[in-house]
Nucleic acid binder design. Structure first.
Lengths: 104, 104
DNA sequence: TTGACAAATAGACGGACATCTATATAATGT
DNA sequence: ACATTATATAGATGTCCGTCTATTTGTCAA
């Protein structure tokens, strides 16, 4: 799962519900049911989206009894974005520009 | 075109042909026909993909007589990736990690 | 072991989209 | 004006994918 395929990454992000789930799982662990409660889709649909995110390496999982908890893999987000920028913005002064973006 | 919508950005990237076109237009200006020659799809298909990239602000255009030249908007790639990281990797030390990614 | 709950899987369905052919629009040269 | 070339647009078609219902798998408690 260390190969950061830009296409796989982009496809995983290319859905509204999935980005919503990513936002929910950012900085915290949530069970599938907790995610279902916070979205407008059914449990199987959430499971489906979590599978897509898992295959893209974008979430970490932790089993606990009957429940499975998910959290966003922030490190992977950074590495995938980094890959994208290396590929599609090779002429840019990345460290400088990133500094600007982070500050404002 | 300054609103960097993460979903629009991801959808624009979520296609193999489109990423291929982005790679071709990276660091140089190409006419539509030149792009067609370097891909395996027809001219209308290339025009369609260029329209998607244009609507996402990912390409710049220059008209010259009959031809239209396209080039990748690297600055926007950086800003969109920056937005994604701010949204989905808020706990990461971005400047540090980006440094690591750029070096290796 | 049975019942209840959590999550994953299977299968169906509808809409979104990538691609094509055909045609329109626009610019240039004869 | 007409022919030619470059690009965009229209419309059709097939495939992918997001969503649902129904069911299965797995875990825990009584």
């Amino acid at each position: 799962m260390s190969t950061s395929d830009p296409l796989l990454f982009a496809k995983a992000l290319a859905d509204d519900t999935r980005q919503q789930i990513m936002g929910l799982c950012c900085c915290r662990w949530l069970s599938v049911n907790q995610i279902v409660e916070k979205t407008r889709v059914t449990q199987p649909t959430v499971s489906h989206h979590l599978a897509v995110l898992r295959e893209a390496g974008l979430v970490n999982t932790r089993d606990e009894g009957k429940q499975t908890f998910y959290t966003l893999n922030q490190d992977r987000v950074v590495r995938c974005c980094g890959q994208l920028m290396l590929k599609f913005a090779p002429e840019q002064q990345l460290t400088v520009k990133m500094g600007e973006i982070i500050e404002k």
